[in-house]
Design a protein around this nucleic acid. Sequence first.
DNA 1: CCGTCCGCACTTACATACAAGCCTTGTATG
DNA 2: CATACAAGGCTTGTATGTAAGTGCGGACGG
Lengths: 259, 259
Amino acid sequence: MAAQRREPRKTRRVEAEAPRPRESVRARVHALLRARITSLELLPGAPLSENELAAELDVSRTPVREALILLGEESLVDVFPKLGTFVSRISVDAVLEAQFMREALELAALREAVTKSGAPDIAALRAILDAQRDALKAGDADGFFEQDEAFHRRLMEASGHRTLWRTVATAKAHLDRARRLSLPLPHRIETLVDEHTAVVDALERRDAARAEDALRGHLQGVFDDIGTIRASHPELFADPHEQPGSAPARPRVHPGLRA
Amino acid sequence: MAAQRREPRKTRRVEAEAPRPRESVRARVHALLRARITSLELLPGAPLSENELAAELDVSRTPVREALILLGEESLVDVFPKLGTFVSRISVDAVLEAQFMREALELAALREAVTKSGAPDIAALRAILDAQRDALKAGDADGFFEQDEAFHRRLMEASGHRTLWRTVATAKAHLDRARRLSLPLPHRIETLVDEHTAVVDALERRDAARAEDALRGHLQGVFDDIGTIRASHPELFADPHEQPGSAPARPRVHPGLRA
DNA sequence: CCGTCCGCACTTACATACAAGCCTTGTATG
DNA sequence: CATACAAGGCTTGTATGTAAGTGCGGACGG
């Protein structure tokens, strides 16, 4: 495909189409690509061309490029100068670090939530659990993950920390990519909701120790699944024994998966 | 000052001046501005114009803009569309969150370091402490802070987590801006080195509980100082009762401090 | 004197043009 | 046939041009 054979964009937009330009183009592109990556719609290793994306989304390269830079900061893409940008492969190190970070932050927040949370928090959490069970029954994988995200996010809010979720979400993105691959295991998923429920139960009884144990076990279990996945999808993972200081697995040729 | 009265940049660079263009211009600008902000060379509230910075650094607006976007992600600058970009004021909420995050991550890492660290780690840490004491005697504030950063970074490496420092450093930046203001208190500073030493001592003895207590106390003490500072420099702090959801303290007029 | 309105000077957001590096592939040569 | 080489097409990096929003300040009317 030749680049940019599309007709030049009109500099003056028709006003019928832009009711809410409140959110910047960059933010929209960033959110879109992030969703595509974490949902595995874009597989690890897939190339992301600034030109192609700009053409597809009908915007200029500038906001696309800025979005890719931000995704690079989150390690969701790897940018190789003058070579190309690719969805990052799942790095064992990155997953380990993400798991560690998530565990440390969520457990610390939970300790505070035990004393700070109130009835509205518990009610909101239980509502999310109900929705998650519904999604499970309906076989709605996307909805299930949405509610999972909502649960952990709401749990952190219950601790009074409102801005910390961004950091946890960044770490969680790496774990989620791996978890998505384990979806075909339905028995595992049912367990997850039960584990969530145990956390809320302990939280409601203000039982700090039990809440902590429940959440820790839950997070550890999620992490353990990833090892199982790796065996069946090795091409999605980065070289396991890579030195972090050295060049980060530059692809010899444009790594496959194109189209 | 009128914008861009500088002569047009030569598109072809003289090659005598660029021996190592390995690091992108964006990365250099980002690092430079970050250093200026965390060192308080650029005070909270100070305006950062893409045009002015591009002219001063003799680069185009593009890498400057990209660097500012990254700093915005770290909450070190606030970008108000079509209005201006300003060094972020020290937000009490942000400092609280940074403190919480740092404490959670560093303590969790320390727990692992107690079992994983070895003699080389201890030796490296003690060397850093010596350097820190030297900087203290010499009255070298910048050097002191450098060694402080090195200490905490090395401590995290001793736990085996190599990539986690980036996250901690982002949080630490907000705390450091406040701490810089407390430098005139020399008695406090001497305490800091002693606290660091206590952590290493306990770590060497593999005394997890004592190491944890020492580090927790140290981090808490650092945090307590910030409250003291706030009284004497209120203009550097954001509105204390600001709703995080609402507009983030948009400046009525370009906030002063301009040259 | 005071309020209102309008334009100007500044900003960032987005679009486009140009530069430079890497890989592939076709081609010529041994 | 194998290999060296060079050109071309792709990529991202940087530079610059254009659009559009915001607040300030002066002109103007009351």
